[in-house]
């Protein structure tokens, strides 16, 4: 993740919009409901998943999160999603559907489904992070009785991510000053990576000491108090109702059938 993108994502989280003002617990729960519904579909589901794009697109628009930023972040996760589904077309070659006279195997359909699910889940996650400060997400997870150790890990990860990016930025600048336009070799990259690791370990230790010096005993407490309002109940109910409806009545399939029958 580039520092600029991480900062921008973090800056968006400090914004003020209808979505930003919702209780983080409502947003976390709504995102969980959305993700669980999306992954619960049949492995060949493609058309029934399409209406689900509505949720991240609308919440991003209401939260003033640029779609370009979301898609750039999705591009970073794309290799991992591709890795999950790339072997499907090789393993499942039986023809499943025909489009414009072209036979398409079940493997390609399930691969498309994995891509679409990945897109939906990552989009929902990014919209959540871009409209809710990470400490507030941690606060929400704590409030929802997630294990404390997990919540603390999340907050420390968030802090160390910036430490890592700071150090990486410094090293990159130092290299650029001396290497000019010369491309980085694999050997140099390996050396820099190990050096980066050692430097971040040192700095992380310093942050850890600073936390211990101020009484940290395994739990990061926040002065923020969460307030659940009617709007939060309505938002969660709306998302849950929409997800259930789309799961039980695959509207896109019905629309497709209707179009074919015309």
């Amino acid at each position: 993740m580039s520092r600029i993108d991480a900062n921008r994502l973090d800056r968006h989280a400090y914004g003020d919009s209808l979505i930003h003002r919702l209780d983080p617990r409502a947003k976390v729960l709504a995102t969980l409901v959305f993700i669980l519904t999306v992954v619960s579909f049949d492995k060949y589901a493609v058309a029934p998943l399409l209406p689900f794009l509505f949720f991240p697109v609308v919440t991003a628009a209401l939260g003033s999160v640029p779609l370009g930023l979301i898609l750039r972040r999705f591009a970073v996760t794309l290799p991992f999603i591709l890795l999950v589904g790339i072997f499907n077309p090789l393993l499942d070659r039986a023809a499943m559907i025909q489009v414009a006279g072209l036979q398409i195997s079940g493997g390609w359909v399930s691969f498309t489904s994995i891509l679409l699910r990945g897109l939906l889940c990552v989009m929902a996650g990014i919209v959540l992070i871009a409209t809710t400060r990470l400490p507030m997400i941690a606060e929400a997870l704590g409030g929802l009785r997630f294990p404390k150790a997990l919540v603390v890990q999340l907050l420390l990860l968030y802090r160390y991510l910036f430490v890592l990016m700071d150090e990486a930025g410094r090293m990159r600048r130092a290299r650029a000053l001396r290497a000019g336009t010369r491309k980085i070799s694999l050997r140099d990259a390996a050396g820099m990576l190990s050096s980066l690791l050692l430097r971040t370990v040192d700095r992380s230790e310093a942050v850890w000491h600073a936390m211990l010096a101020r009484g940290f005993a395994g739990e990061i407490r926040s002065p923020n108090r969460l307030h659940w309002h009617l709007a939060d109940t309505l938002f969660l109910a709306l998302v849950a109702a929409a997800c259930t409806t789309l799961r039980v009545h695959p509207i896109a399939d019905r629309v497709g059938e209707w179009v074919l029958n015309l």
Binding site: M211, R214, G215, F216, A217, R221, S222, P223, N224
Partner: peptide, 12 residues
């Protein structure tokens, strides 16, 4: 900054 200054007091 507010949360940072509050950190030690919350631990107390």
């Amino acid at each position: 900054l507010y949360e940072d200054v509050a950190f030690g007091l919350l631990n107390k």
